[in-house]
Design a protein around this nucleic acid. Sequence first.
DNA 1: TAAAATACCATACATTTGTATGGTAAAATT
DNA 2: AATTTTACCATACAAATGTATGGTATTTTA
Lengths: 207, 207
Amino acid sequence: MKKELTEIQKKILDYLIDQKVSKGIPPTLAEIAKHFGYKNRATVQQHLQAIEKKGYIKKNPKLSRAIEVTVEEKFFIPRPILGEVAAGNPLTIYPDAIDTVELPTIVRMPKDSFLLRVKGDSLKDAYIFSGDIVIVNPNLEPKNGQIVVAILDDAAVVKRFYKKKNEIELVSENPEYKPIVIEKKYPSFKIVGIVIGVYRSMNKKAV
Amino acid sequence: MKKELTEIQKKILDYLIDQKVSKGIPPTLAEIAKHFGYKNRATVQQHLQAIEKKGYIKKNPKLSRAIEVTVEEKFFIPRPILGEVAAGNPLTIYPDAIDTVELPTIVRMPKDSFLLRVKGDSLKDAYIFSGDIVIVNPNLEPKNGQIVVAILDDAAVVKRFYKKKNEIELVSENPEYKPIVIEKKYPSFKIVGIVIGVYRSMNKKAV
DNA sequence: TAAAATACCATACATTTGTATGGTAAAATT
DNA sequence: AATTTTACCATACAAATGTATGGTATTTTA
């Protein structure tokens, strides 16, 4: 079991991931320092050392921007918000309806987007199938009816998004799955991004 | 119209894209130099300047690794192949079949591949729908069961390919459509290429 | 309560990095 | 034939970058 990160360390790790996803390239120490308001890079340097010591990143010494996030699920594990999980009681959700998504090597896409491989057939009526790769843009506000990627507890789901008065509904197009309803304040919930495209390789068979 | 890149410039641009896709981070000048066996960075520097001048990349000066590839679509515009195919049948006959689309870099594919927008639902059981964009590789021999693009008289079709003794069968997955049977010598028939991938933009509604 | 970890600061320094400048040689263009 | 483009080389240098070292103050842990 890996050691727990401190709050600040988590935030920095978060930033590392964010930058890689949105800019496609890890930040330099200076950039991190600027973002967090540190007056020098040494502070960042020490945080990074601490994070590396705990096994969450790996640094290639001397090389610029060579910060590798080594915890793949990292993208989906507690972010600062999620870290404060579950003061209240978790909602009754339907675990079977939750699709898990593998985050492949983060690829920089034209519009800061990244890729996810879809597993499960809950969106098959939206023409998205198991094995398909969805291109996700994290910088857009979801509109009703759009297909979004969301984090819910420890799982990521790809579903159609509907915002209602006091709750958010994540709907599968496949009638076999029931909608997931989330109260707005539910802590471990986060919209990761909007699916802007789907890609499927014809070489690999859908799983 | 953008200027043509030289062979070496193309290779470097290729490398930039490759690195971005595989490593997730653009290389430094030194890394490029090493990869191509250059003894100093100045050579790379000059190539990059040339490539930037021609509009294929954009550099953020002073920042490390800040090389932005600006022309993903460049790789996906219709290729000469179609022109050859059209020797007998002018390209203008099926203008709707050919279209340029902005594709994410992930869908970067074999040289000479091109894109076609699918119309009609004859392949919907193969998970290809009207409005989808298929990526076609003209340099592969079609194998039985593969989805191919063929030109038949003055129409381009996307169908599953089956080679038989004396004829070729083009099958729709949609049972509403009957297979097209072509005698081998049929003059106005030509396999354009093999569908190696499918892409769908979620922004544009399927036509 | 003492020790360790955390969270910063400042300064210093060797590399890395991007870039500017100047040069040679061959190929392509005019 | 003259000029431009291309494709390298070498050197030089400022800025960016990573890192080492030492320091202070607070919080956490033993």
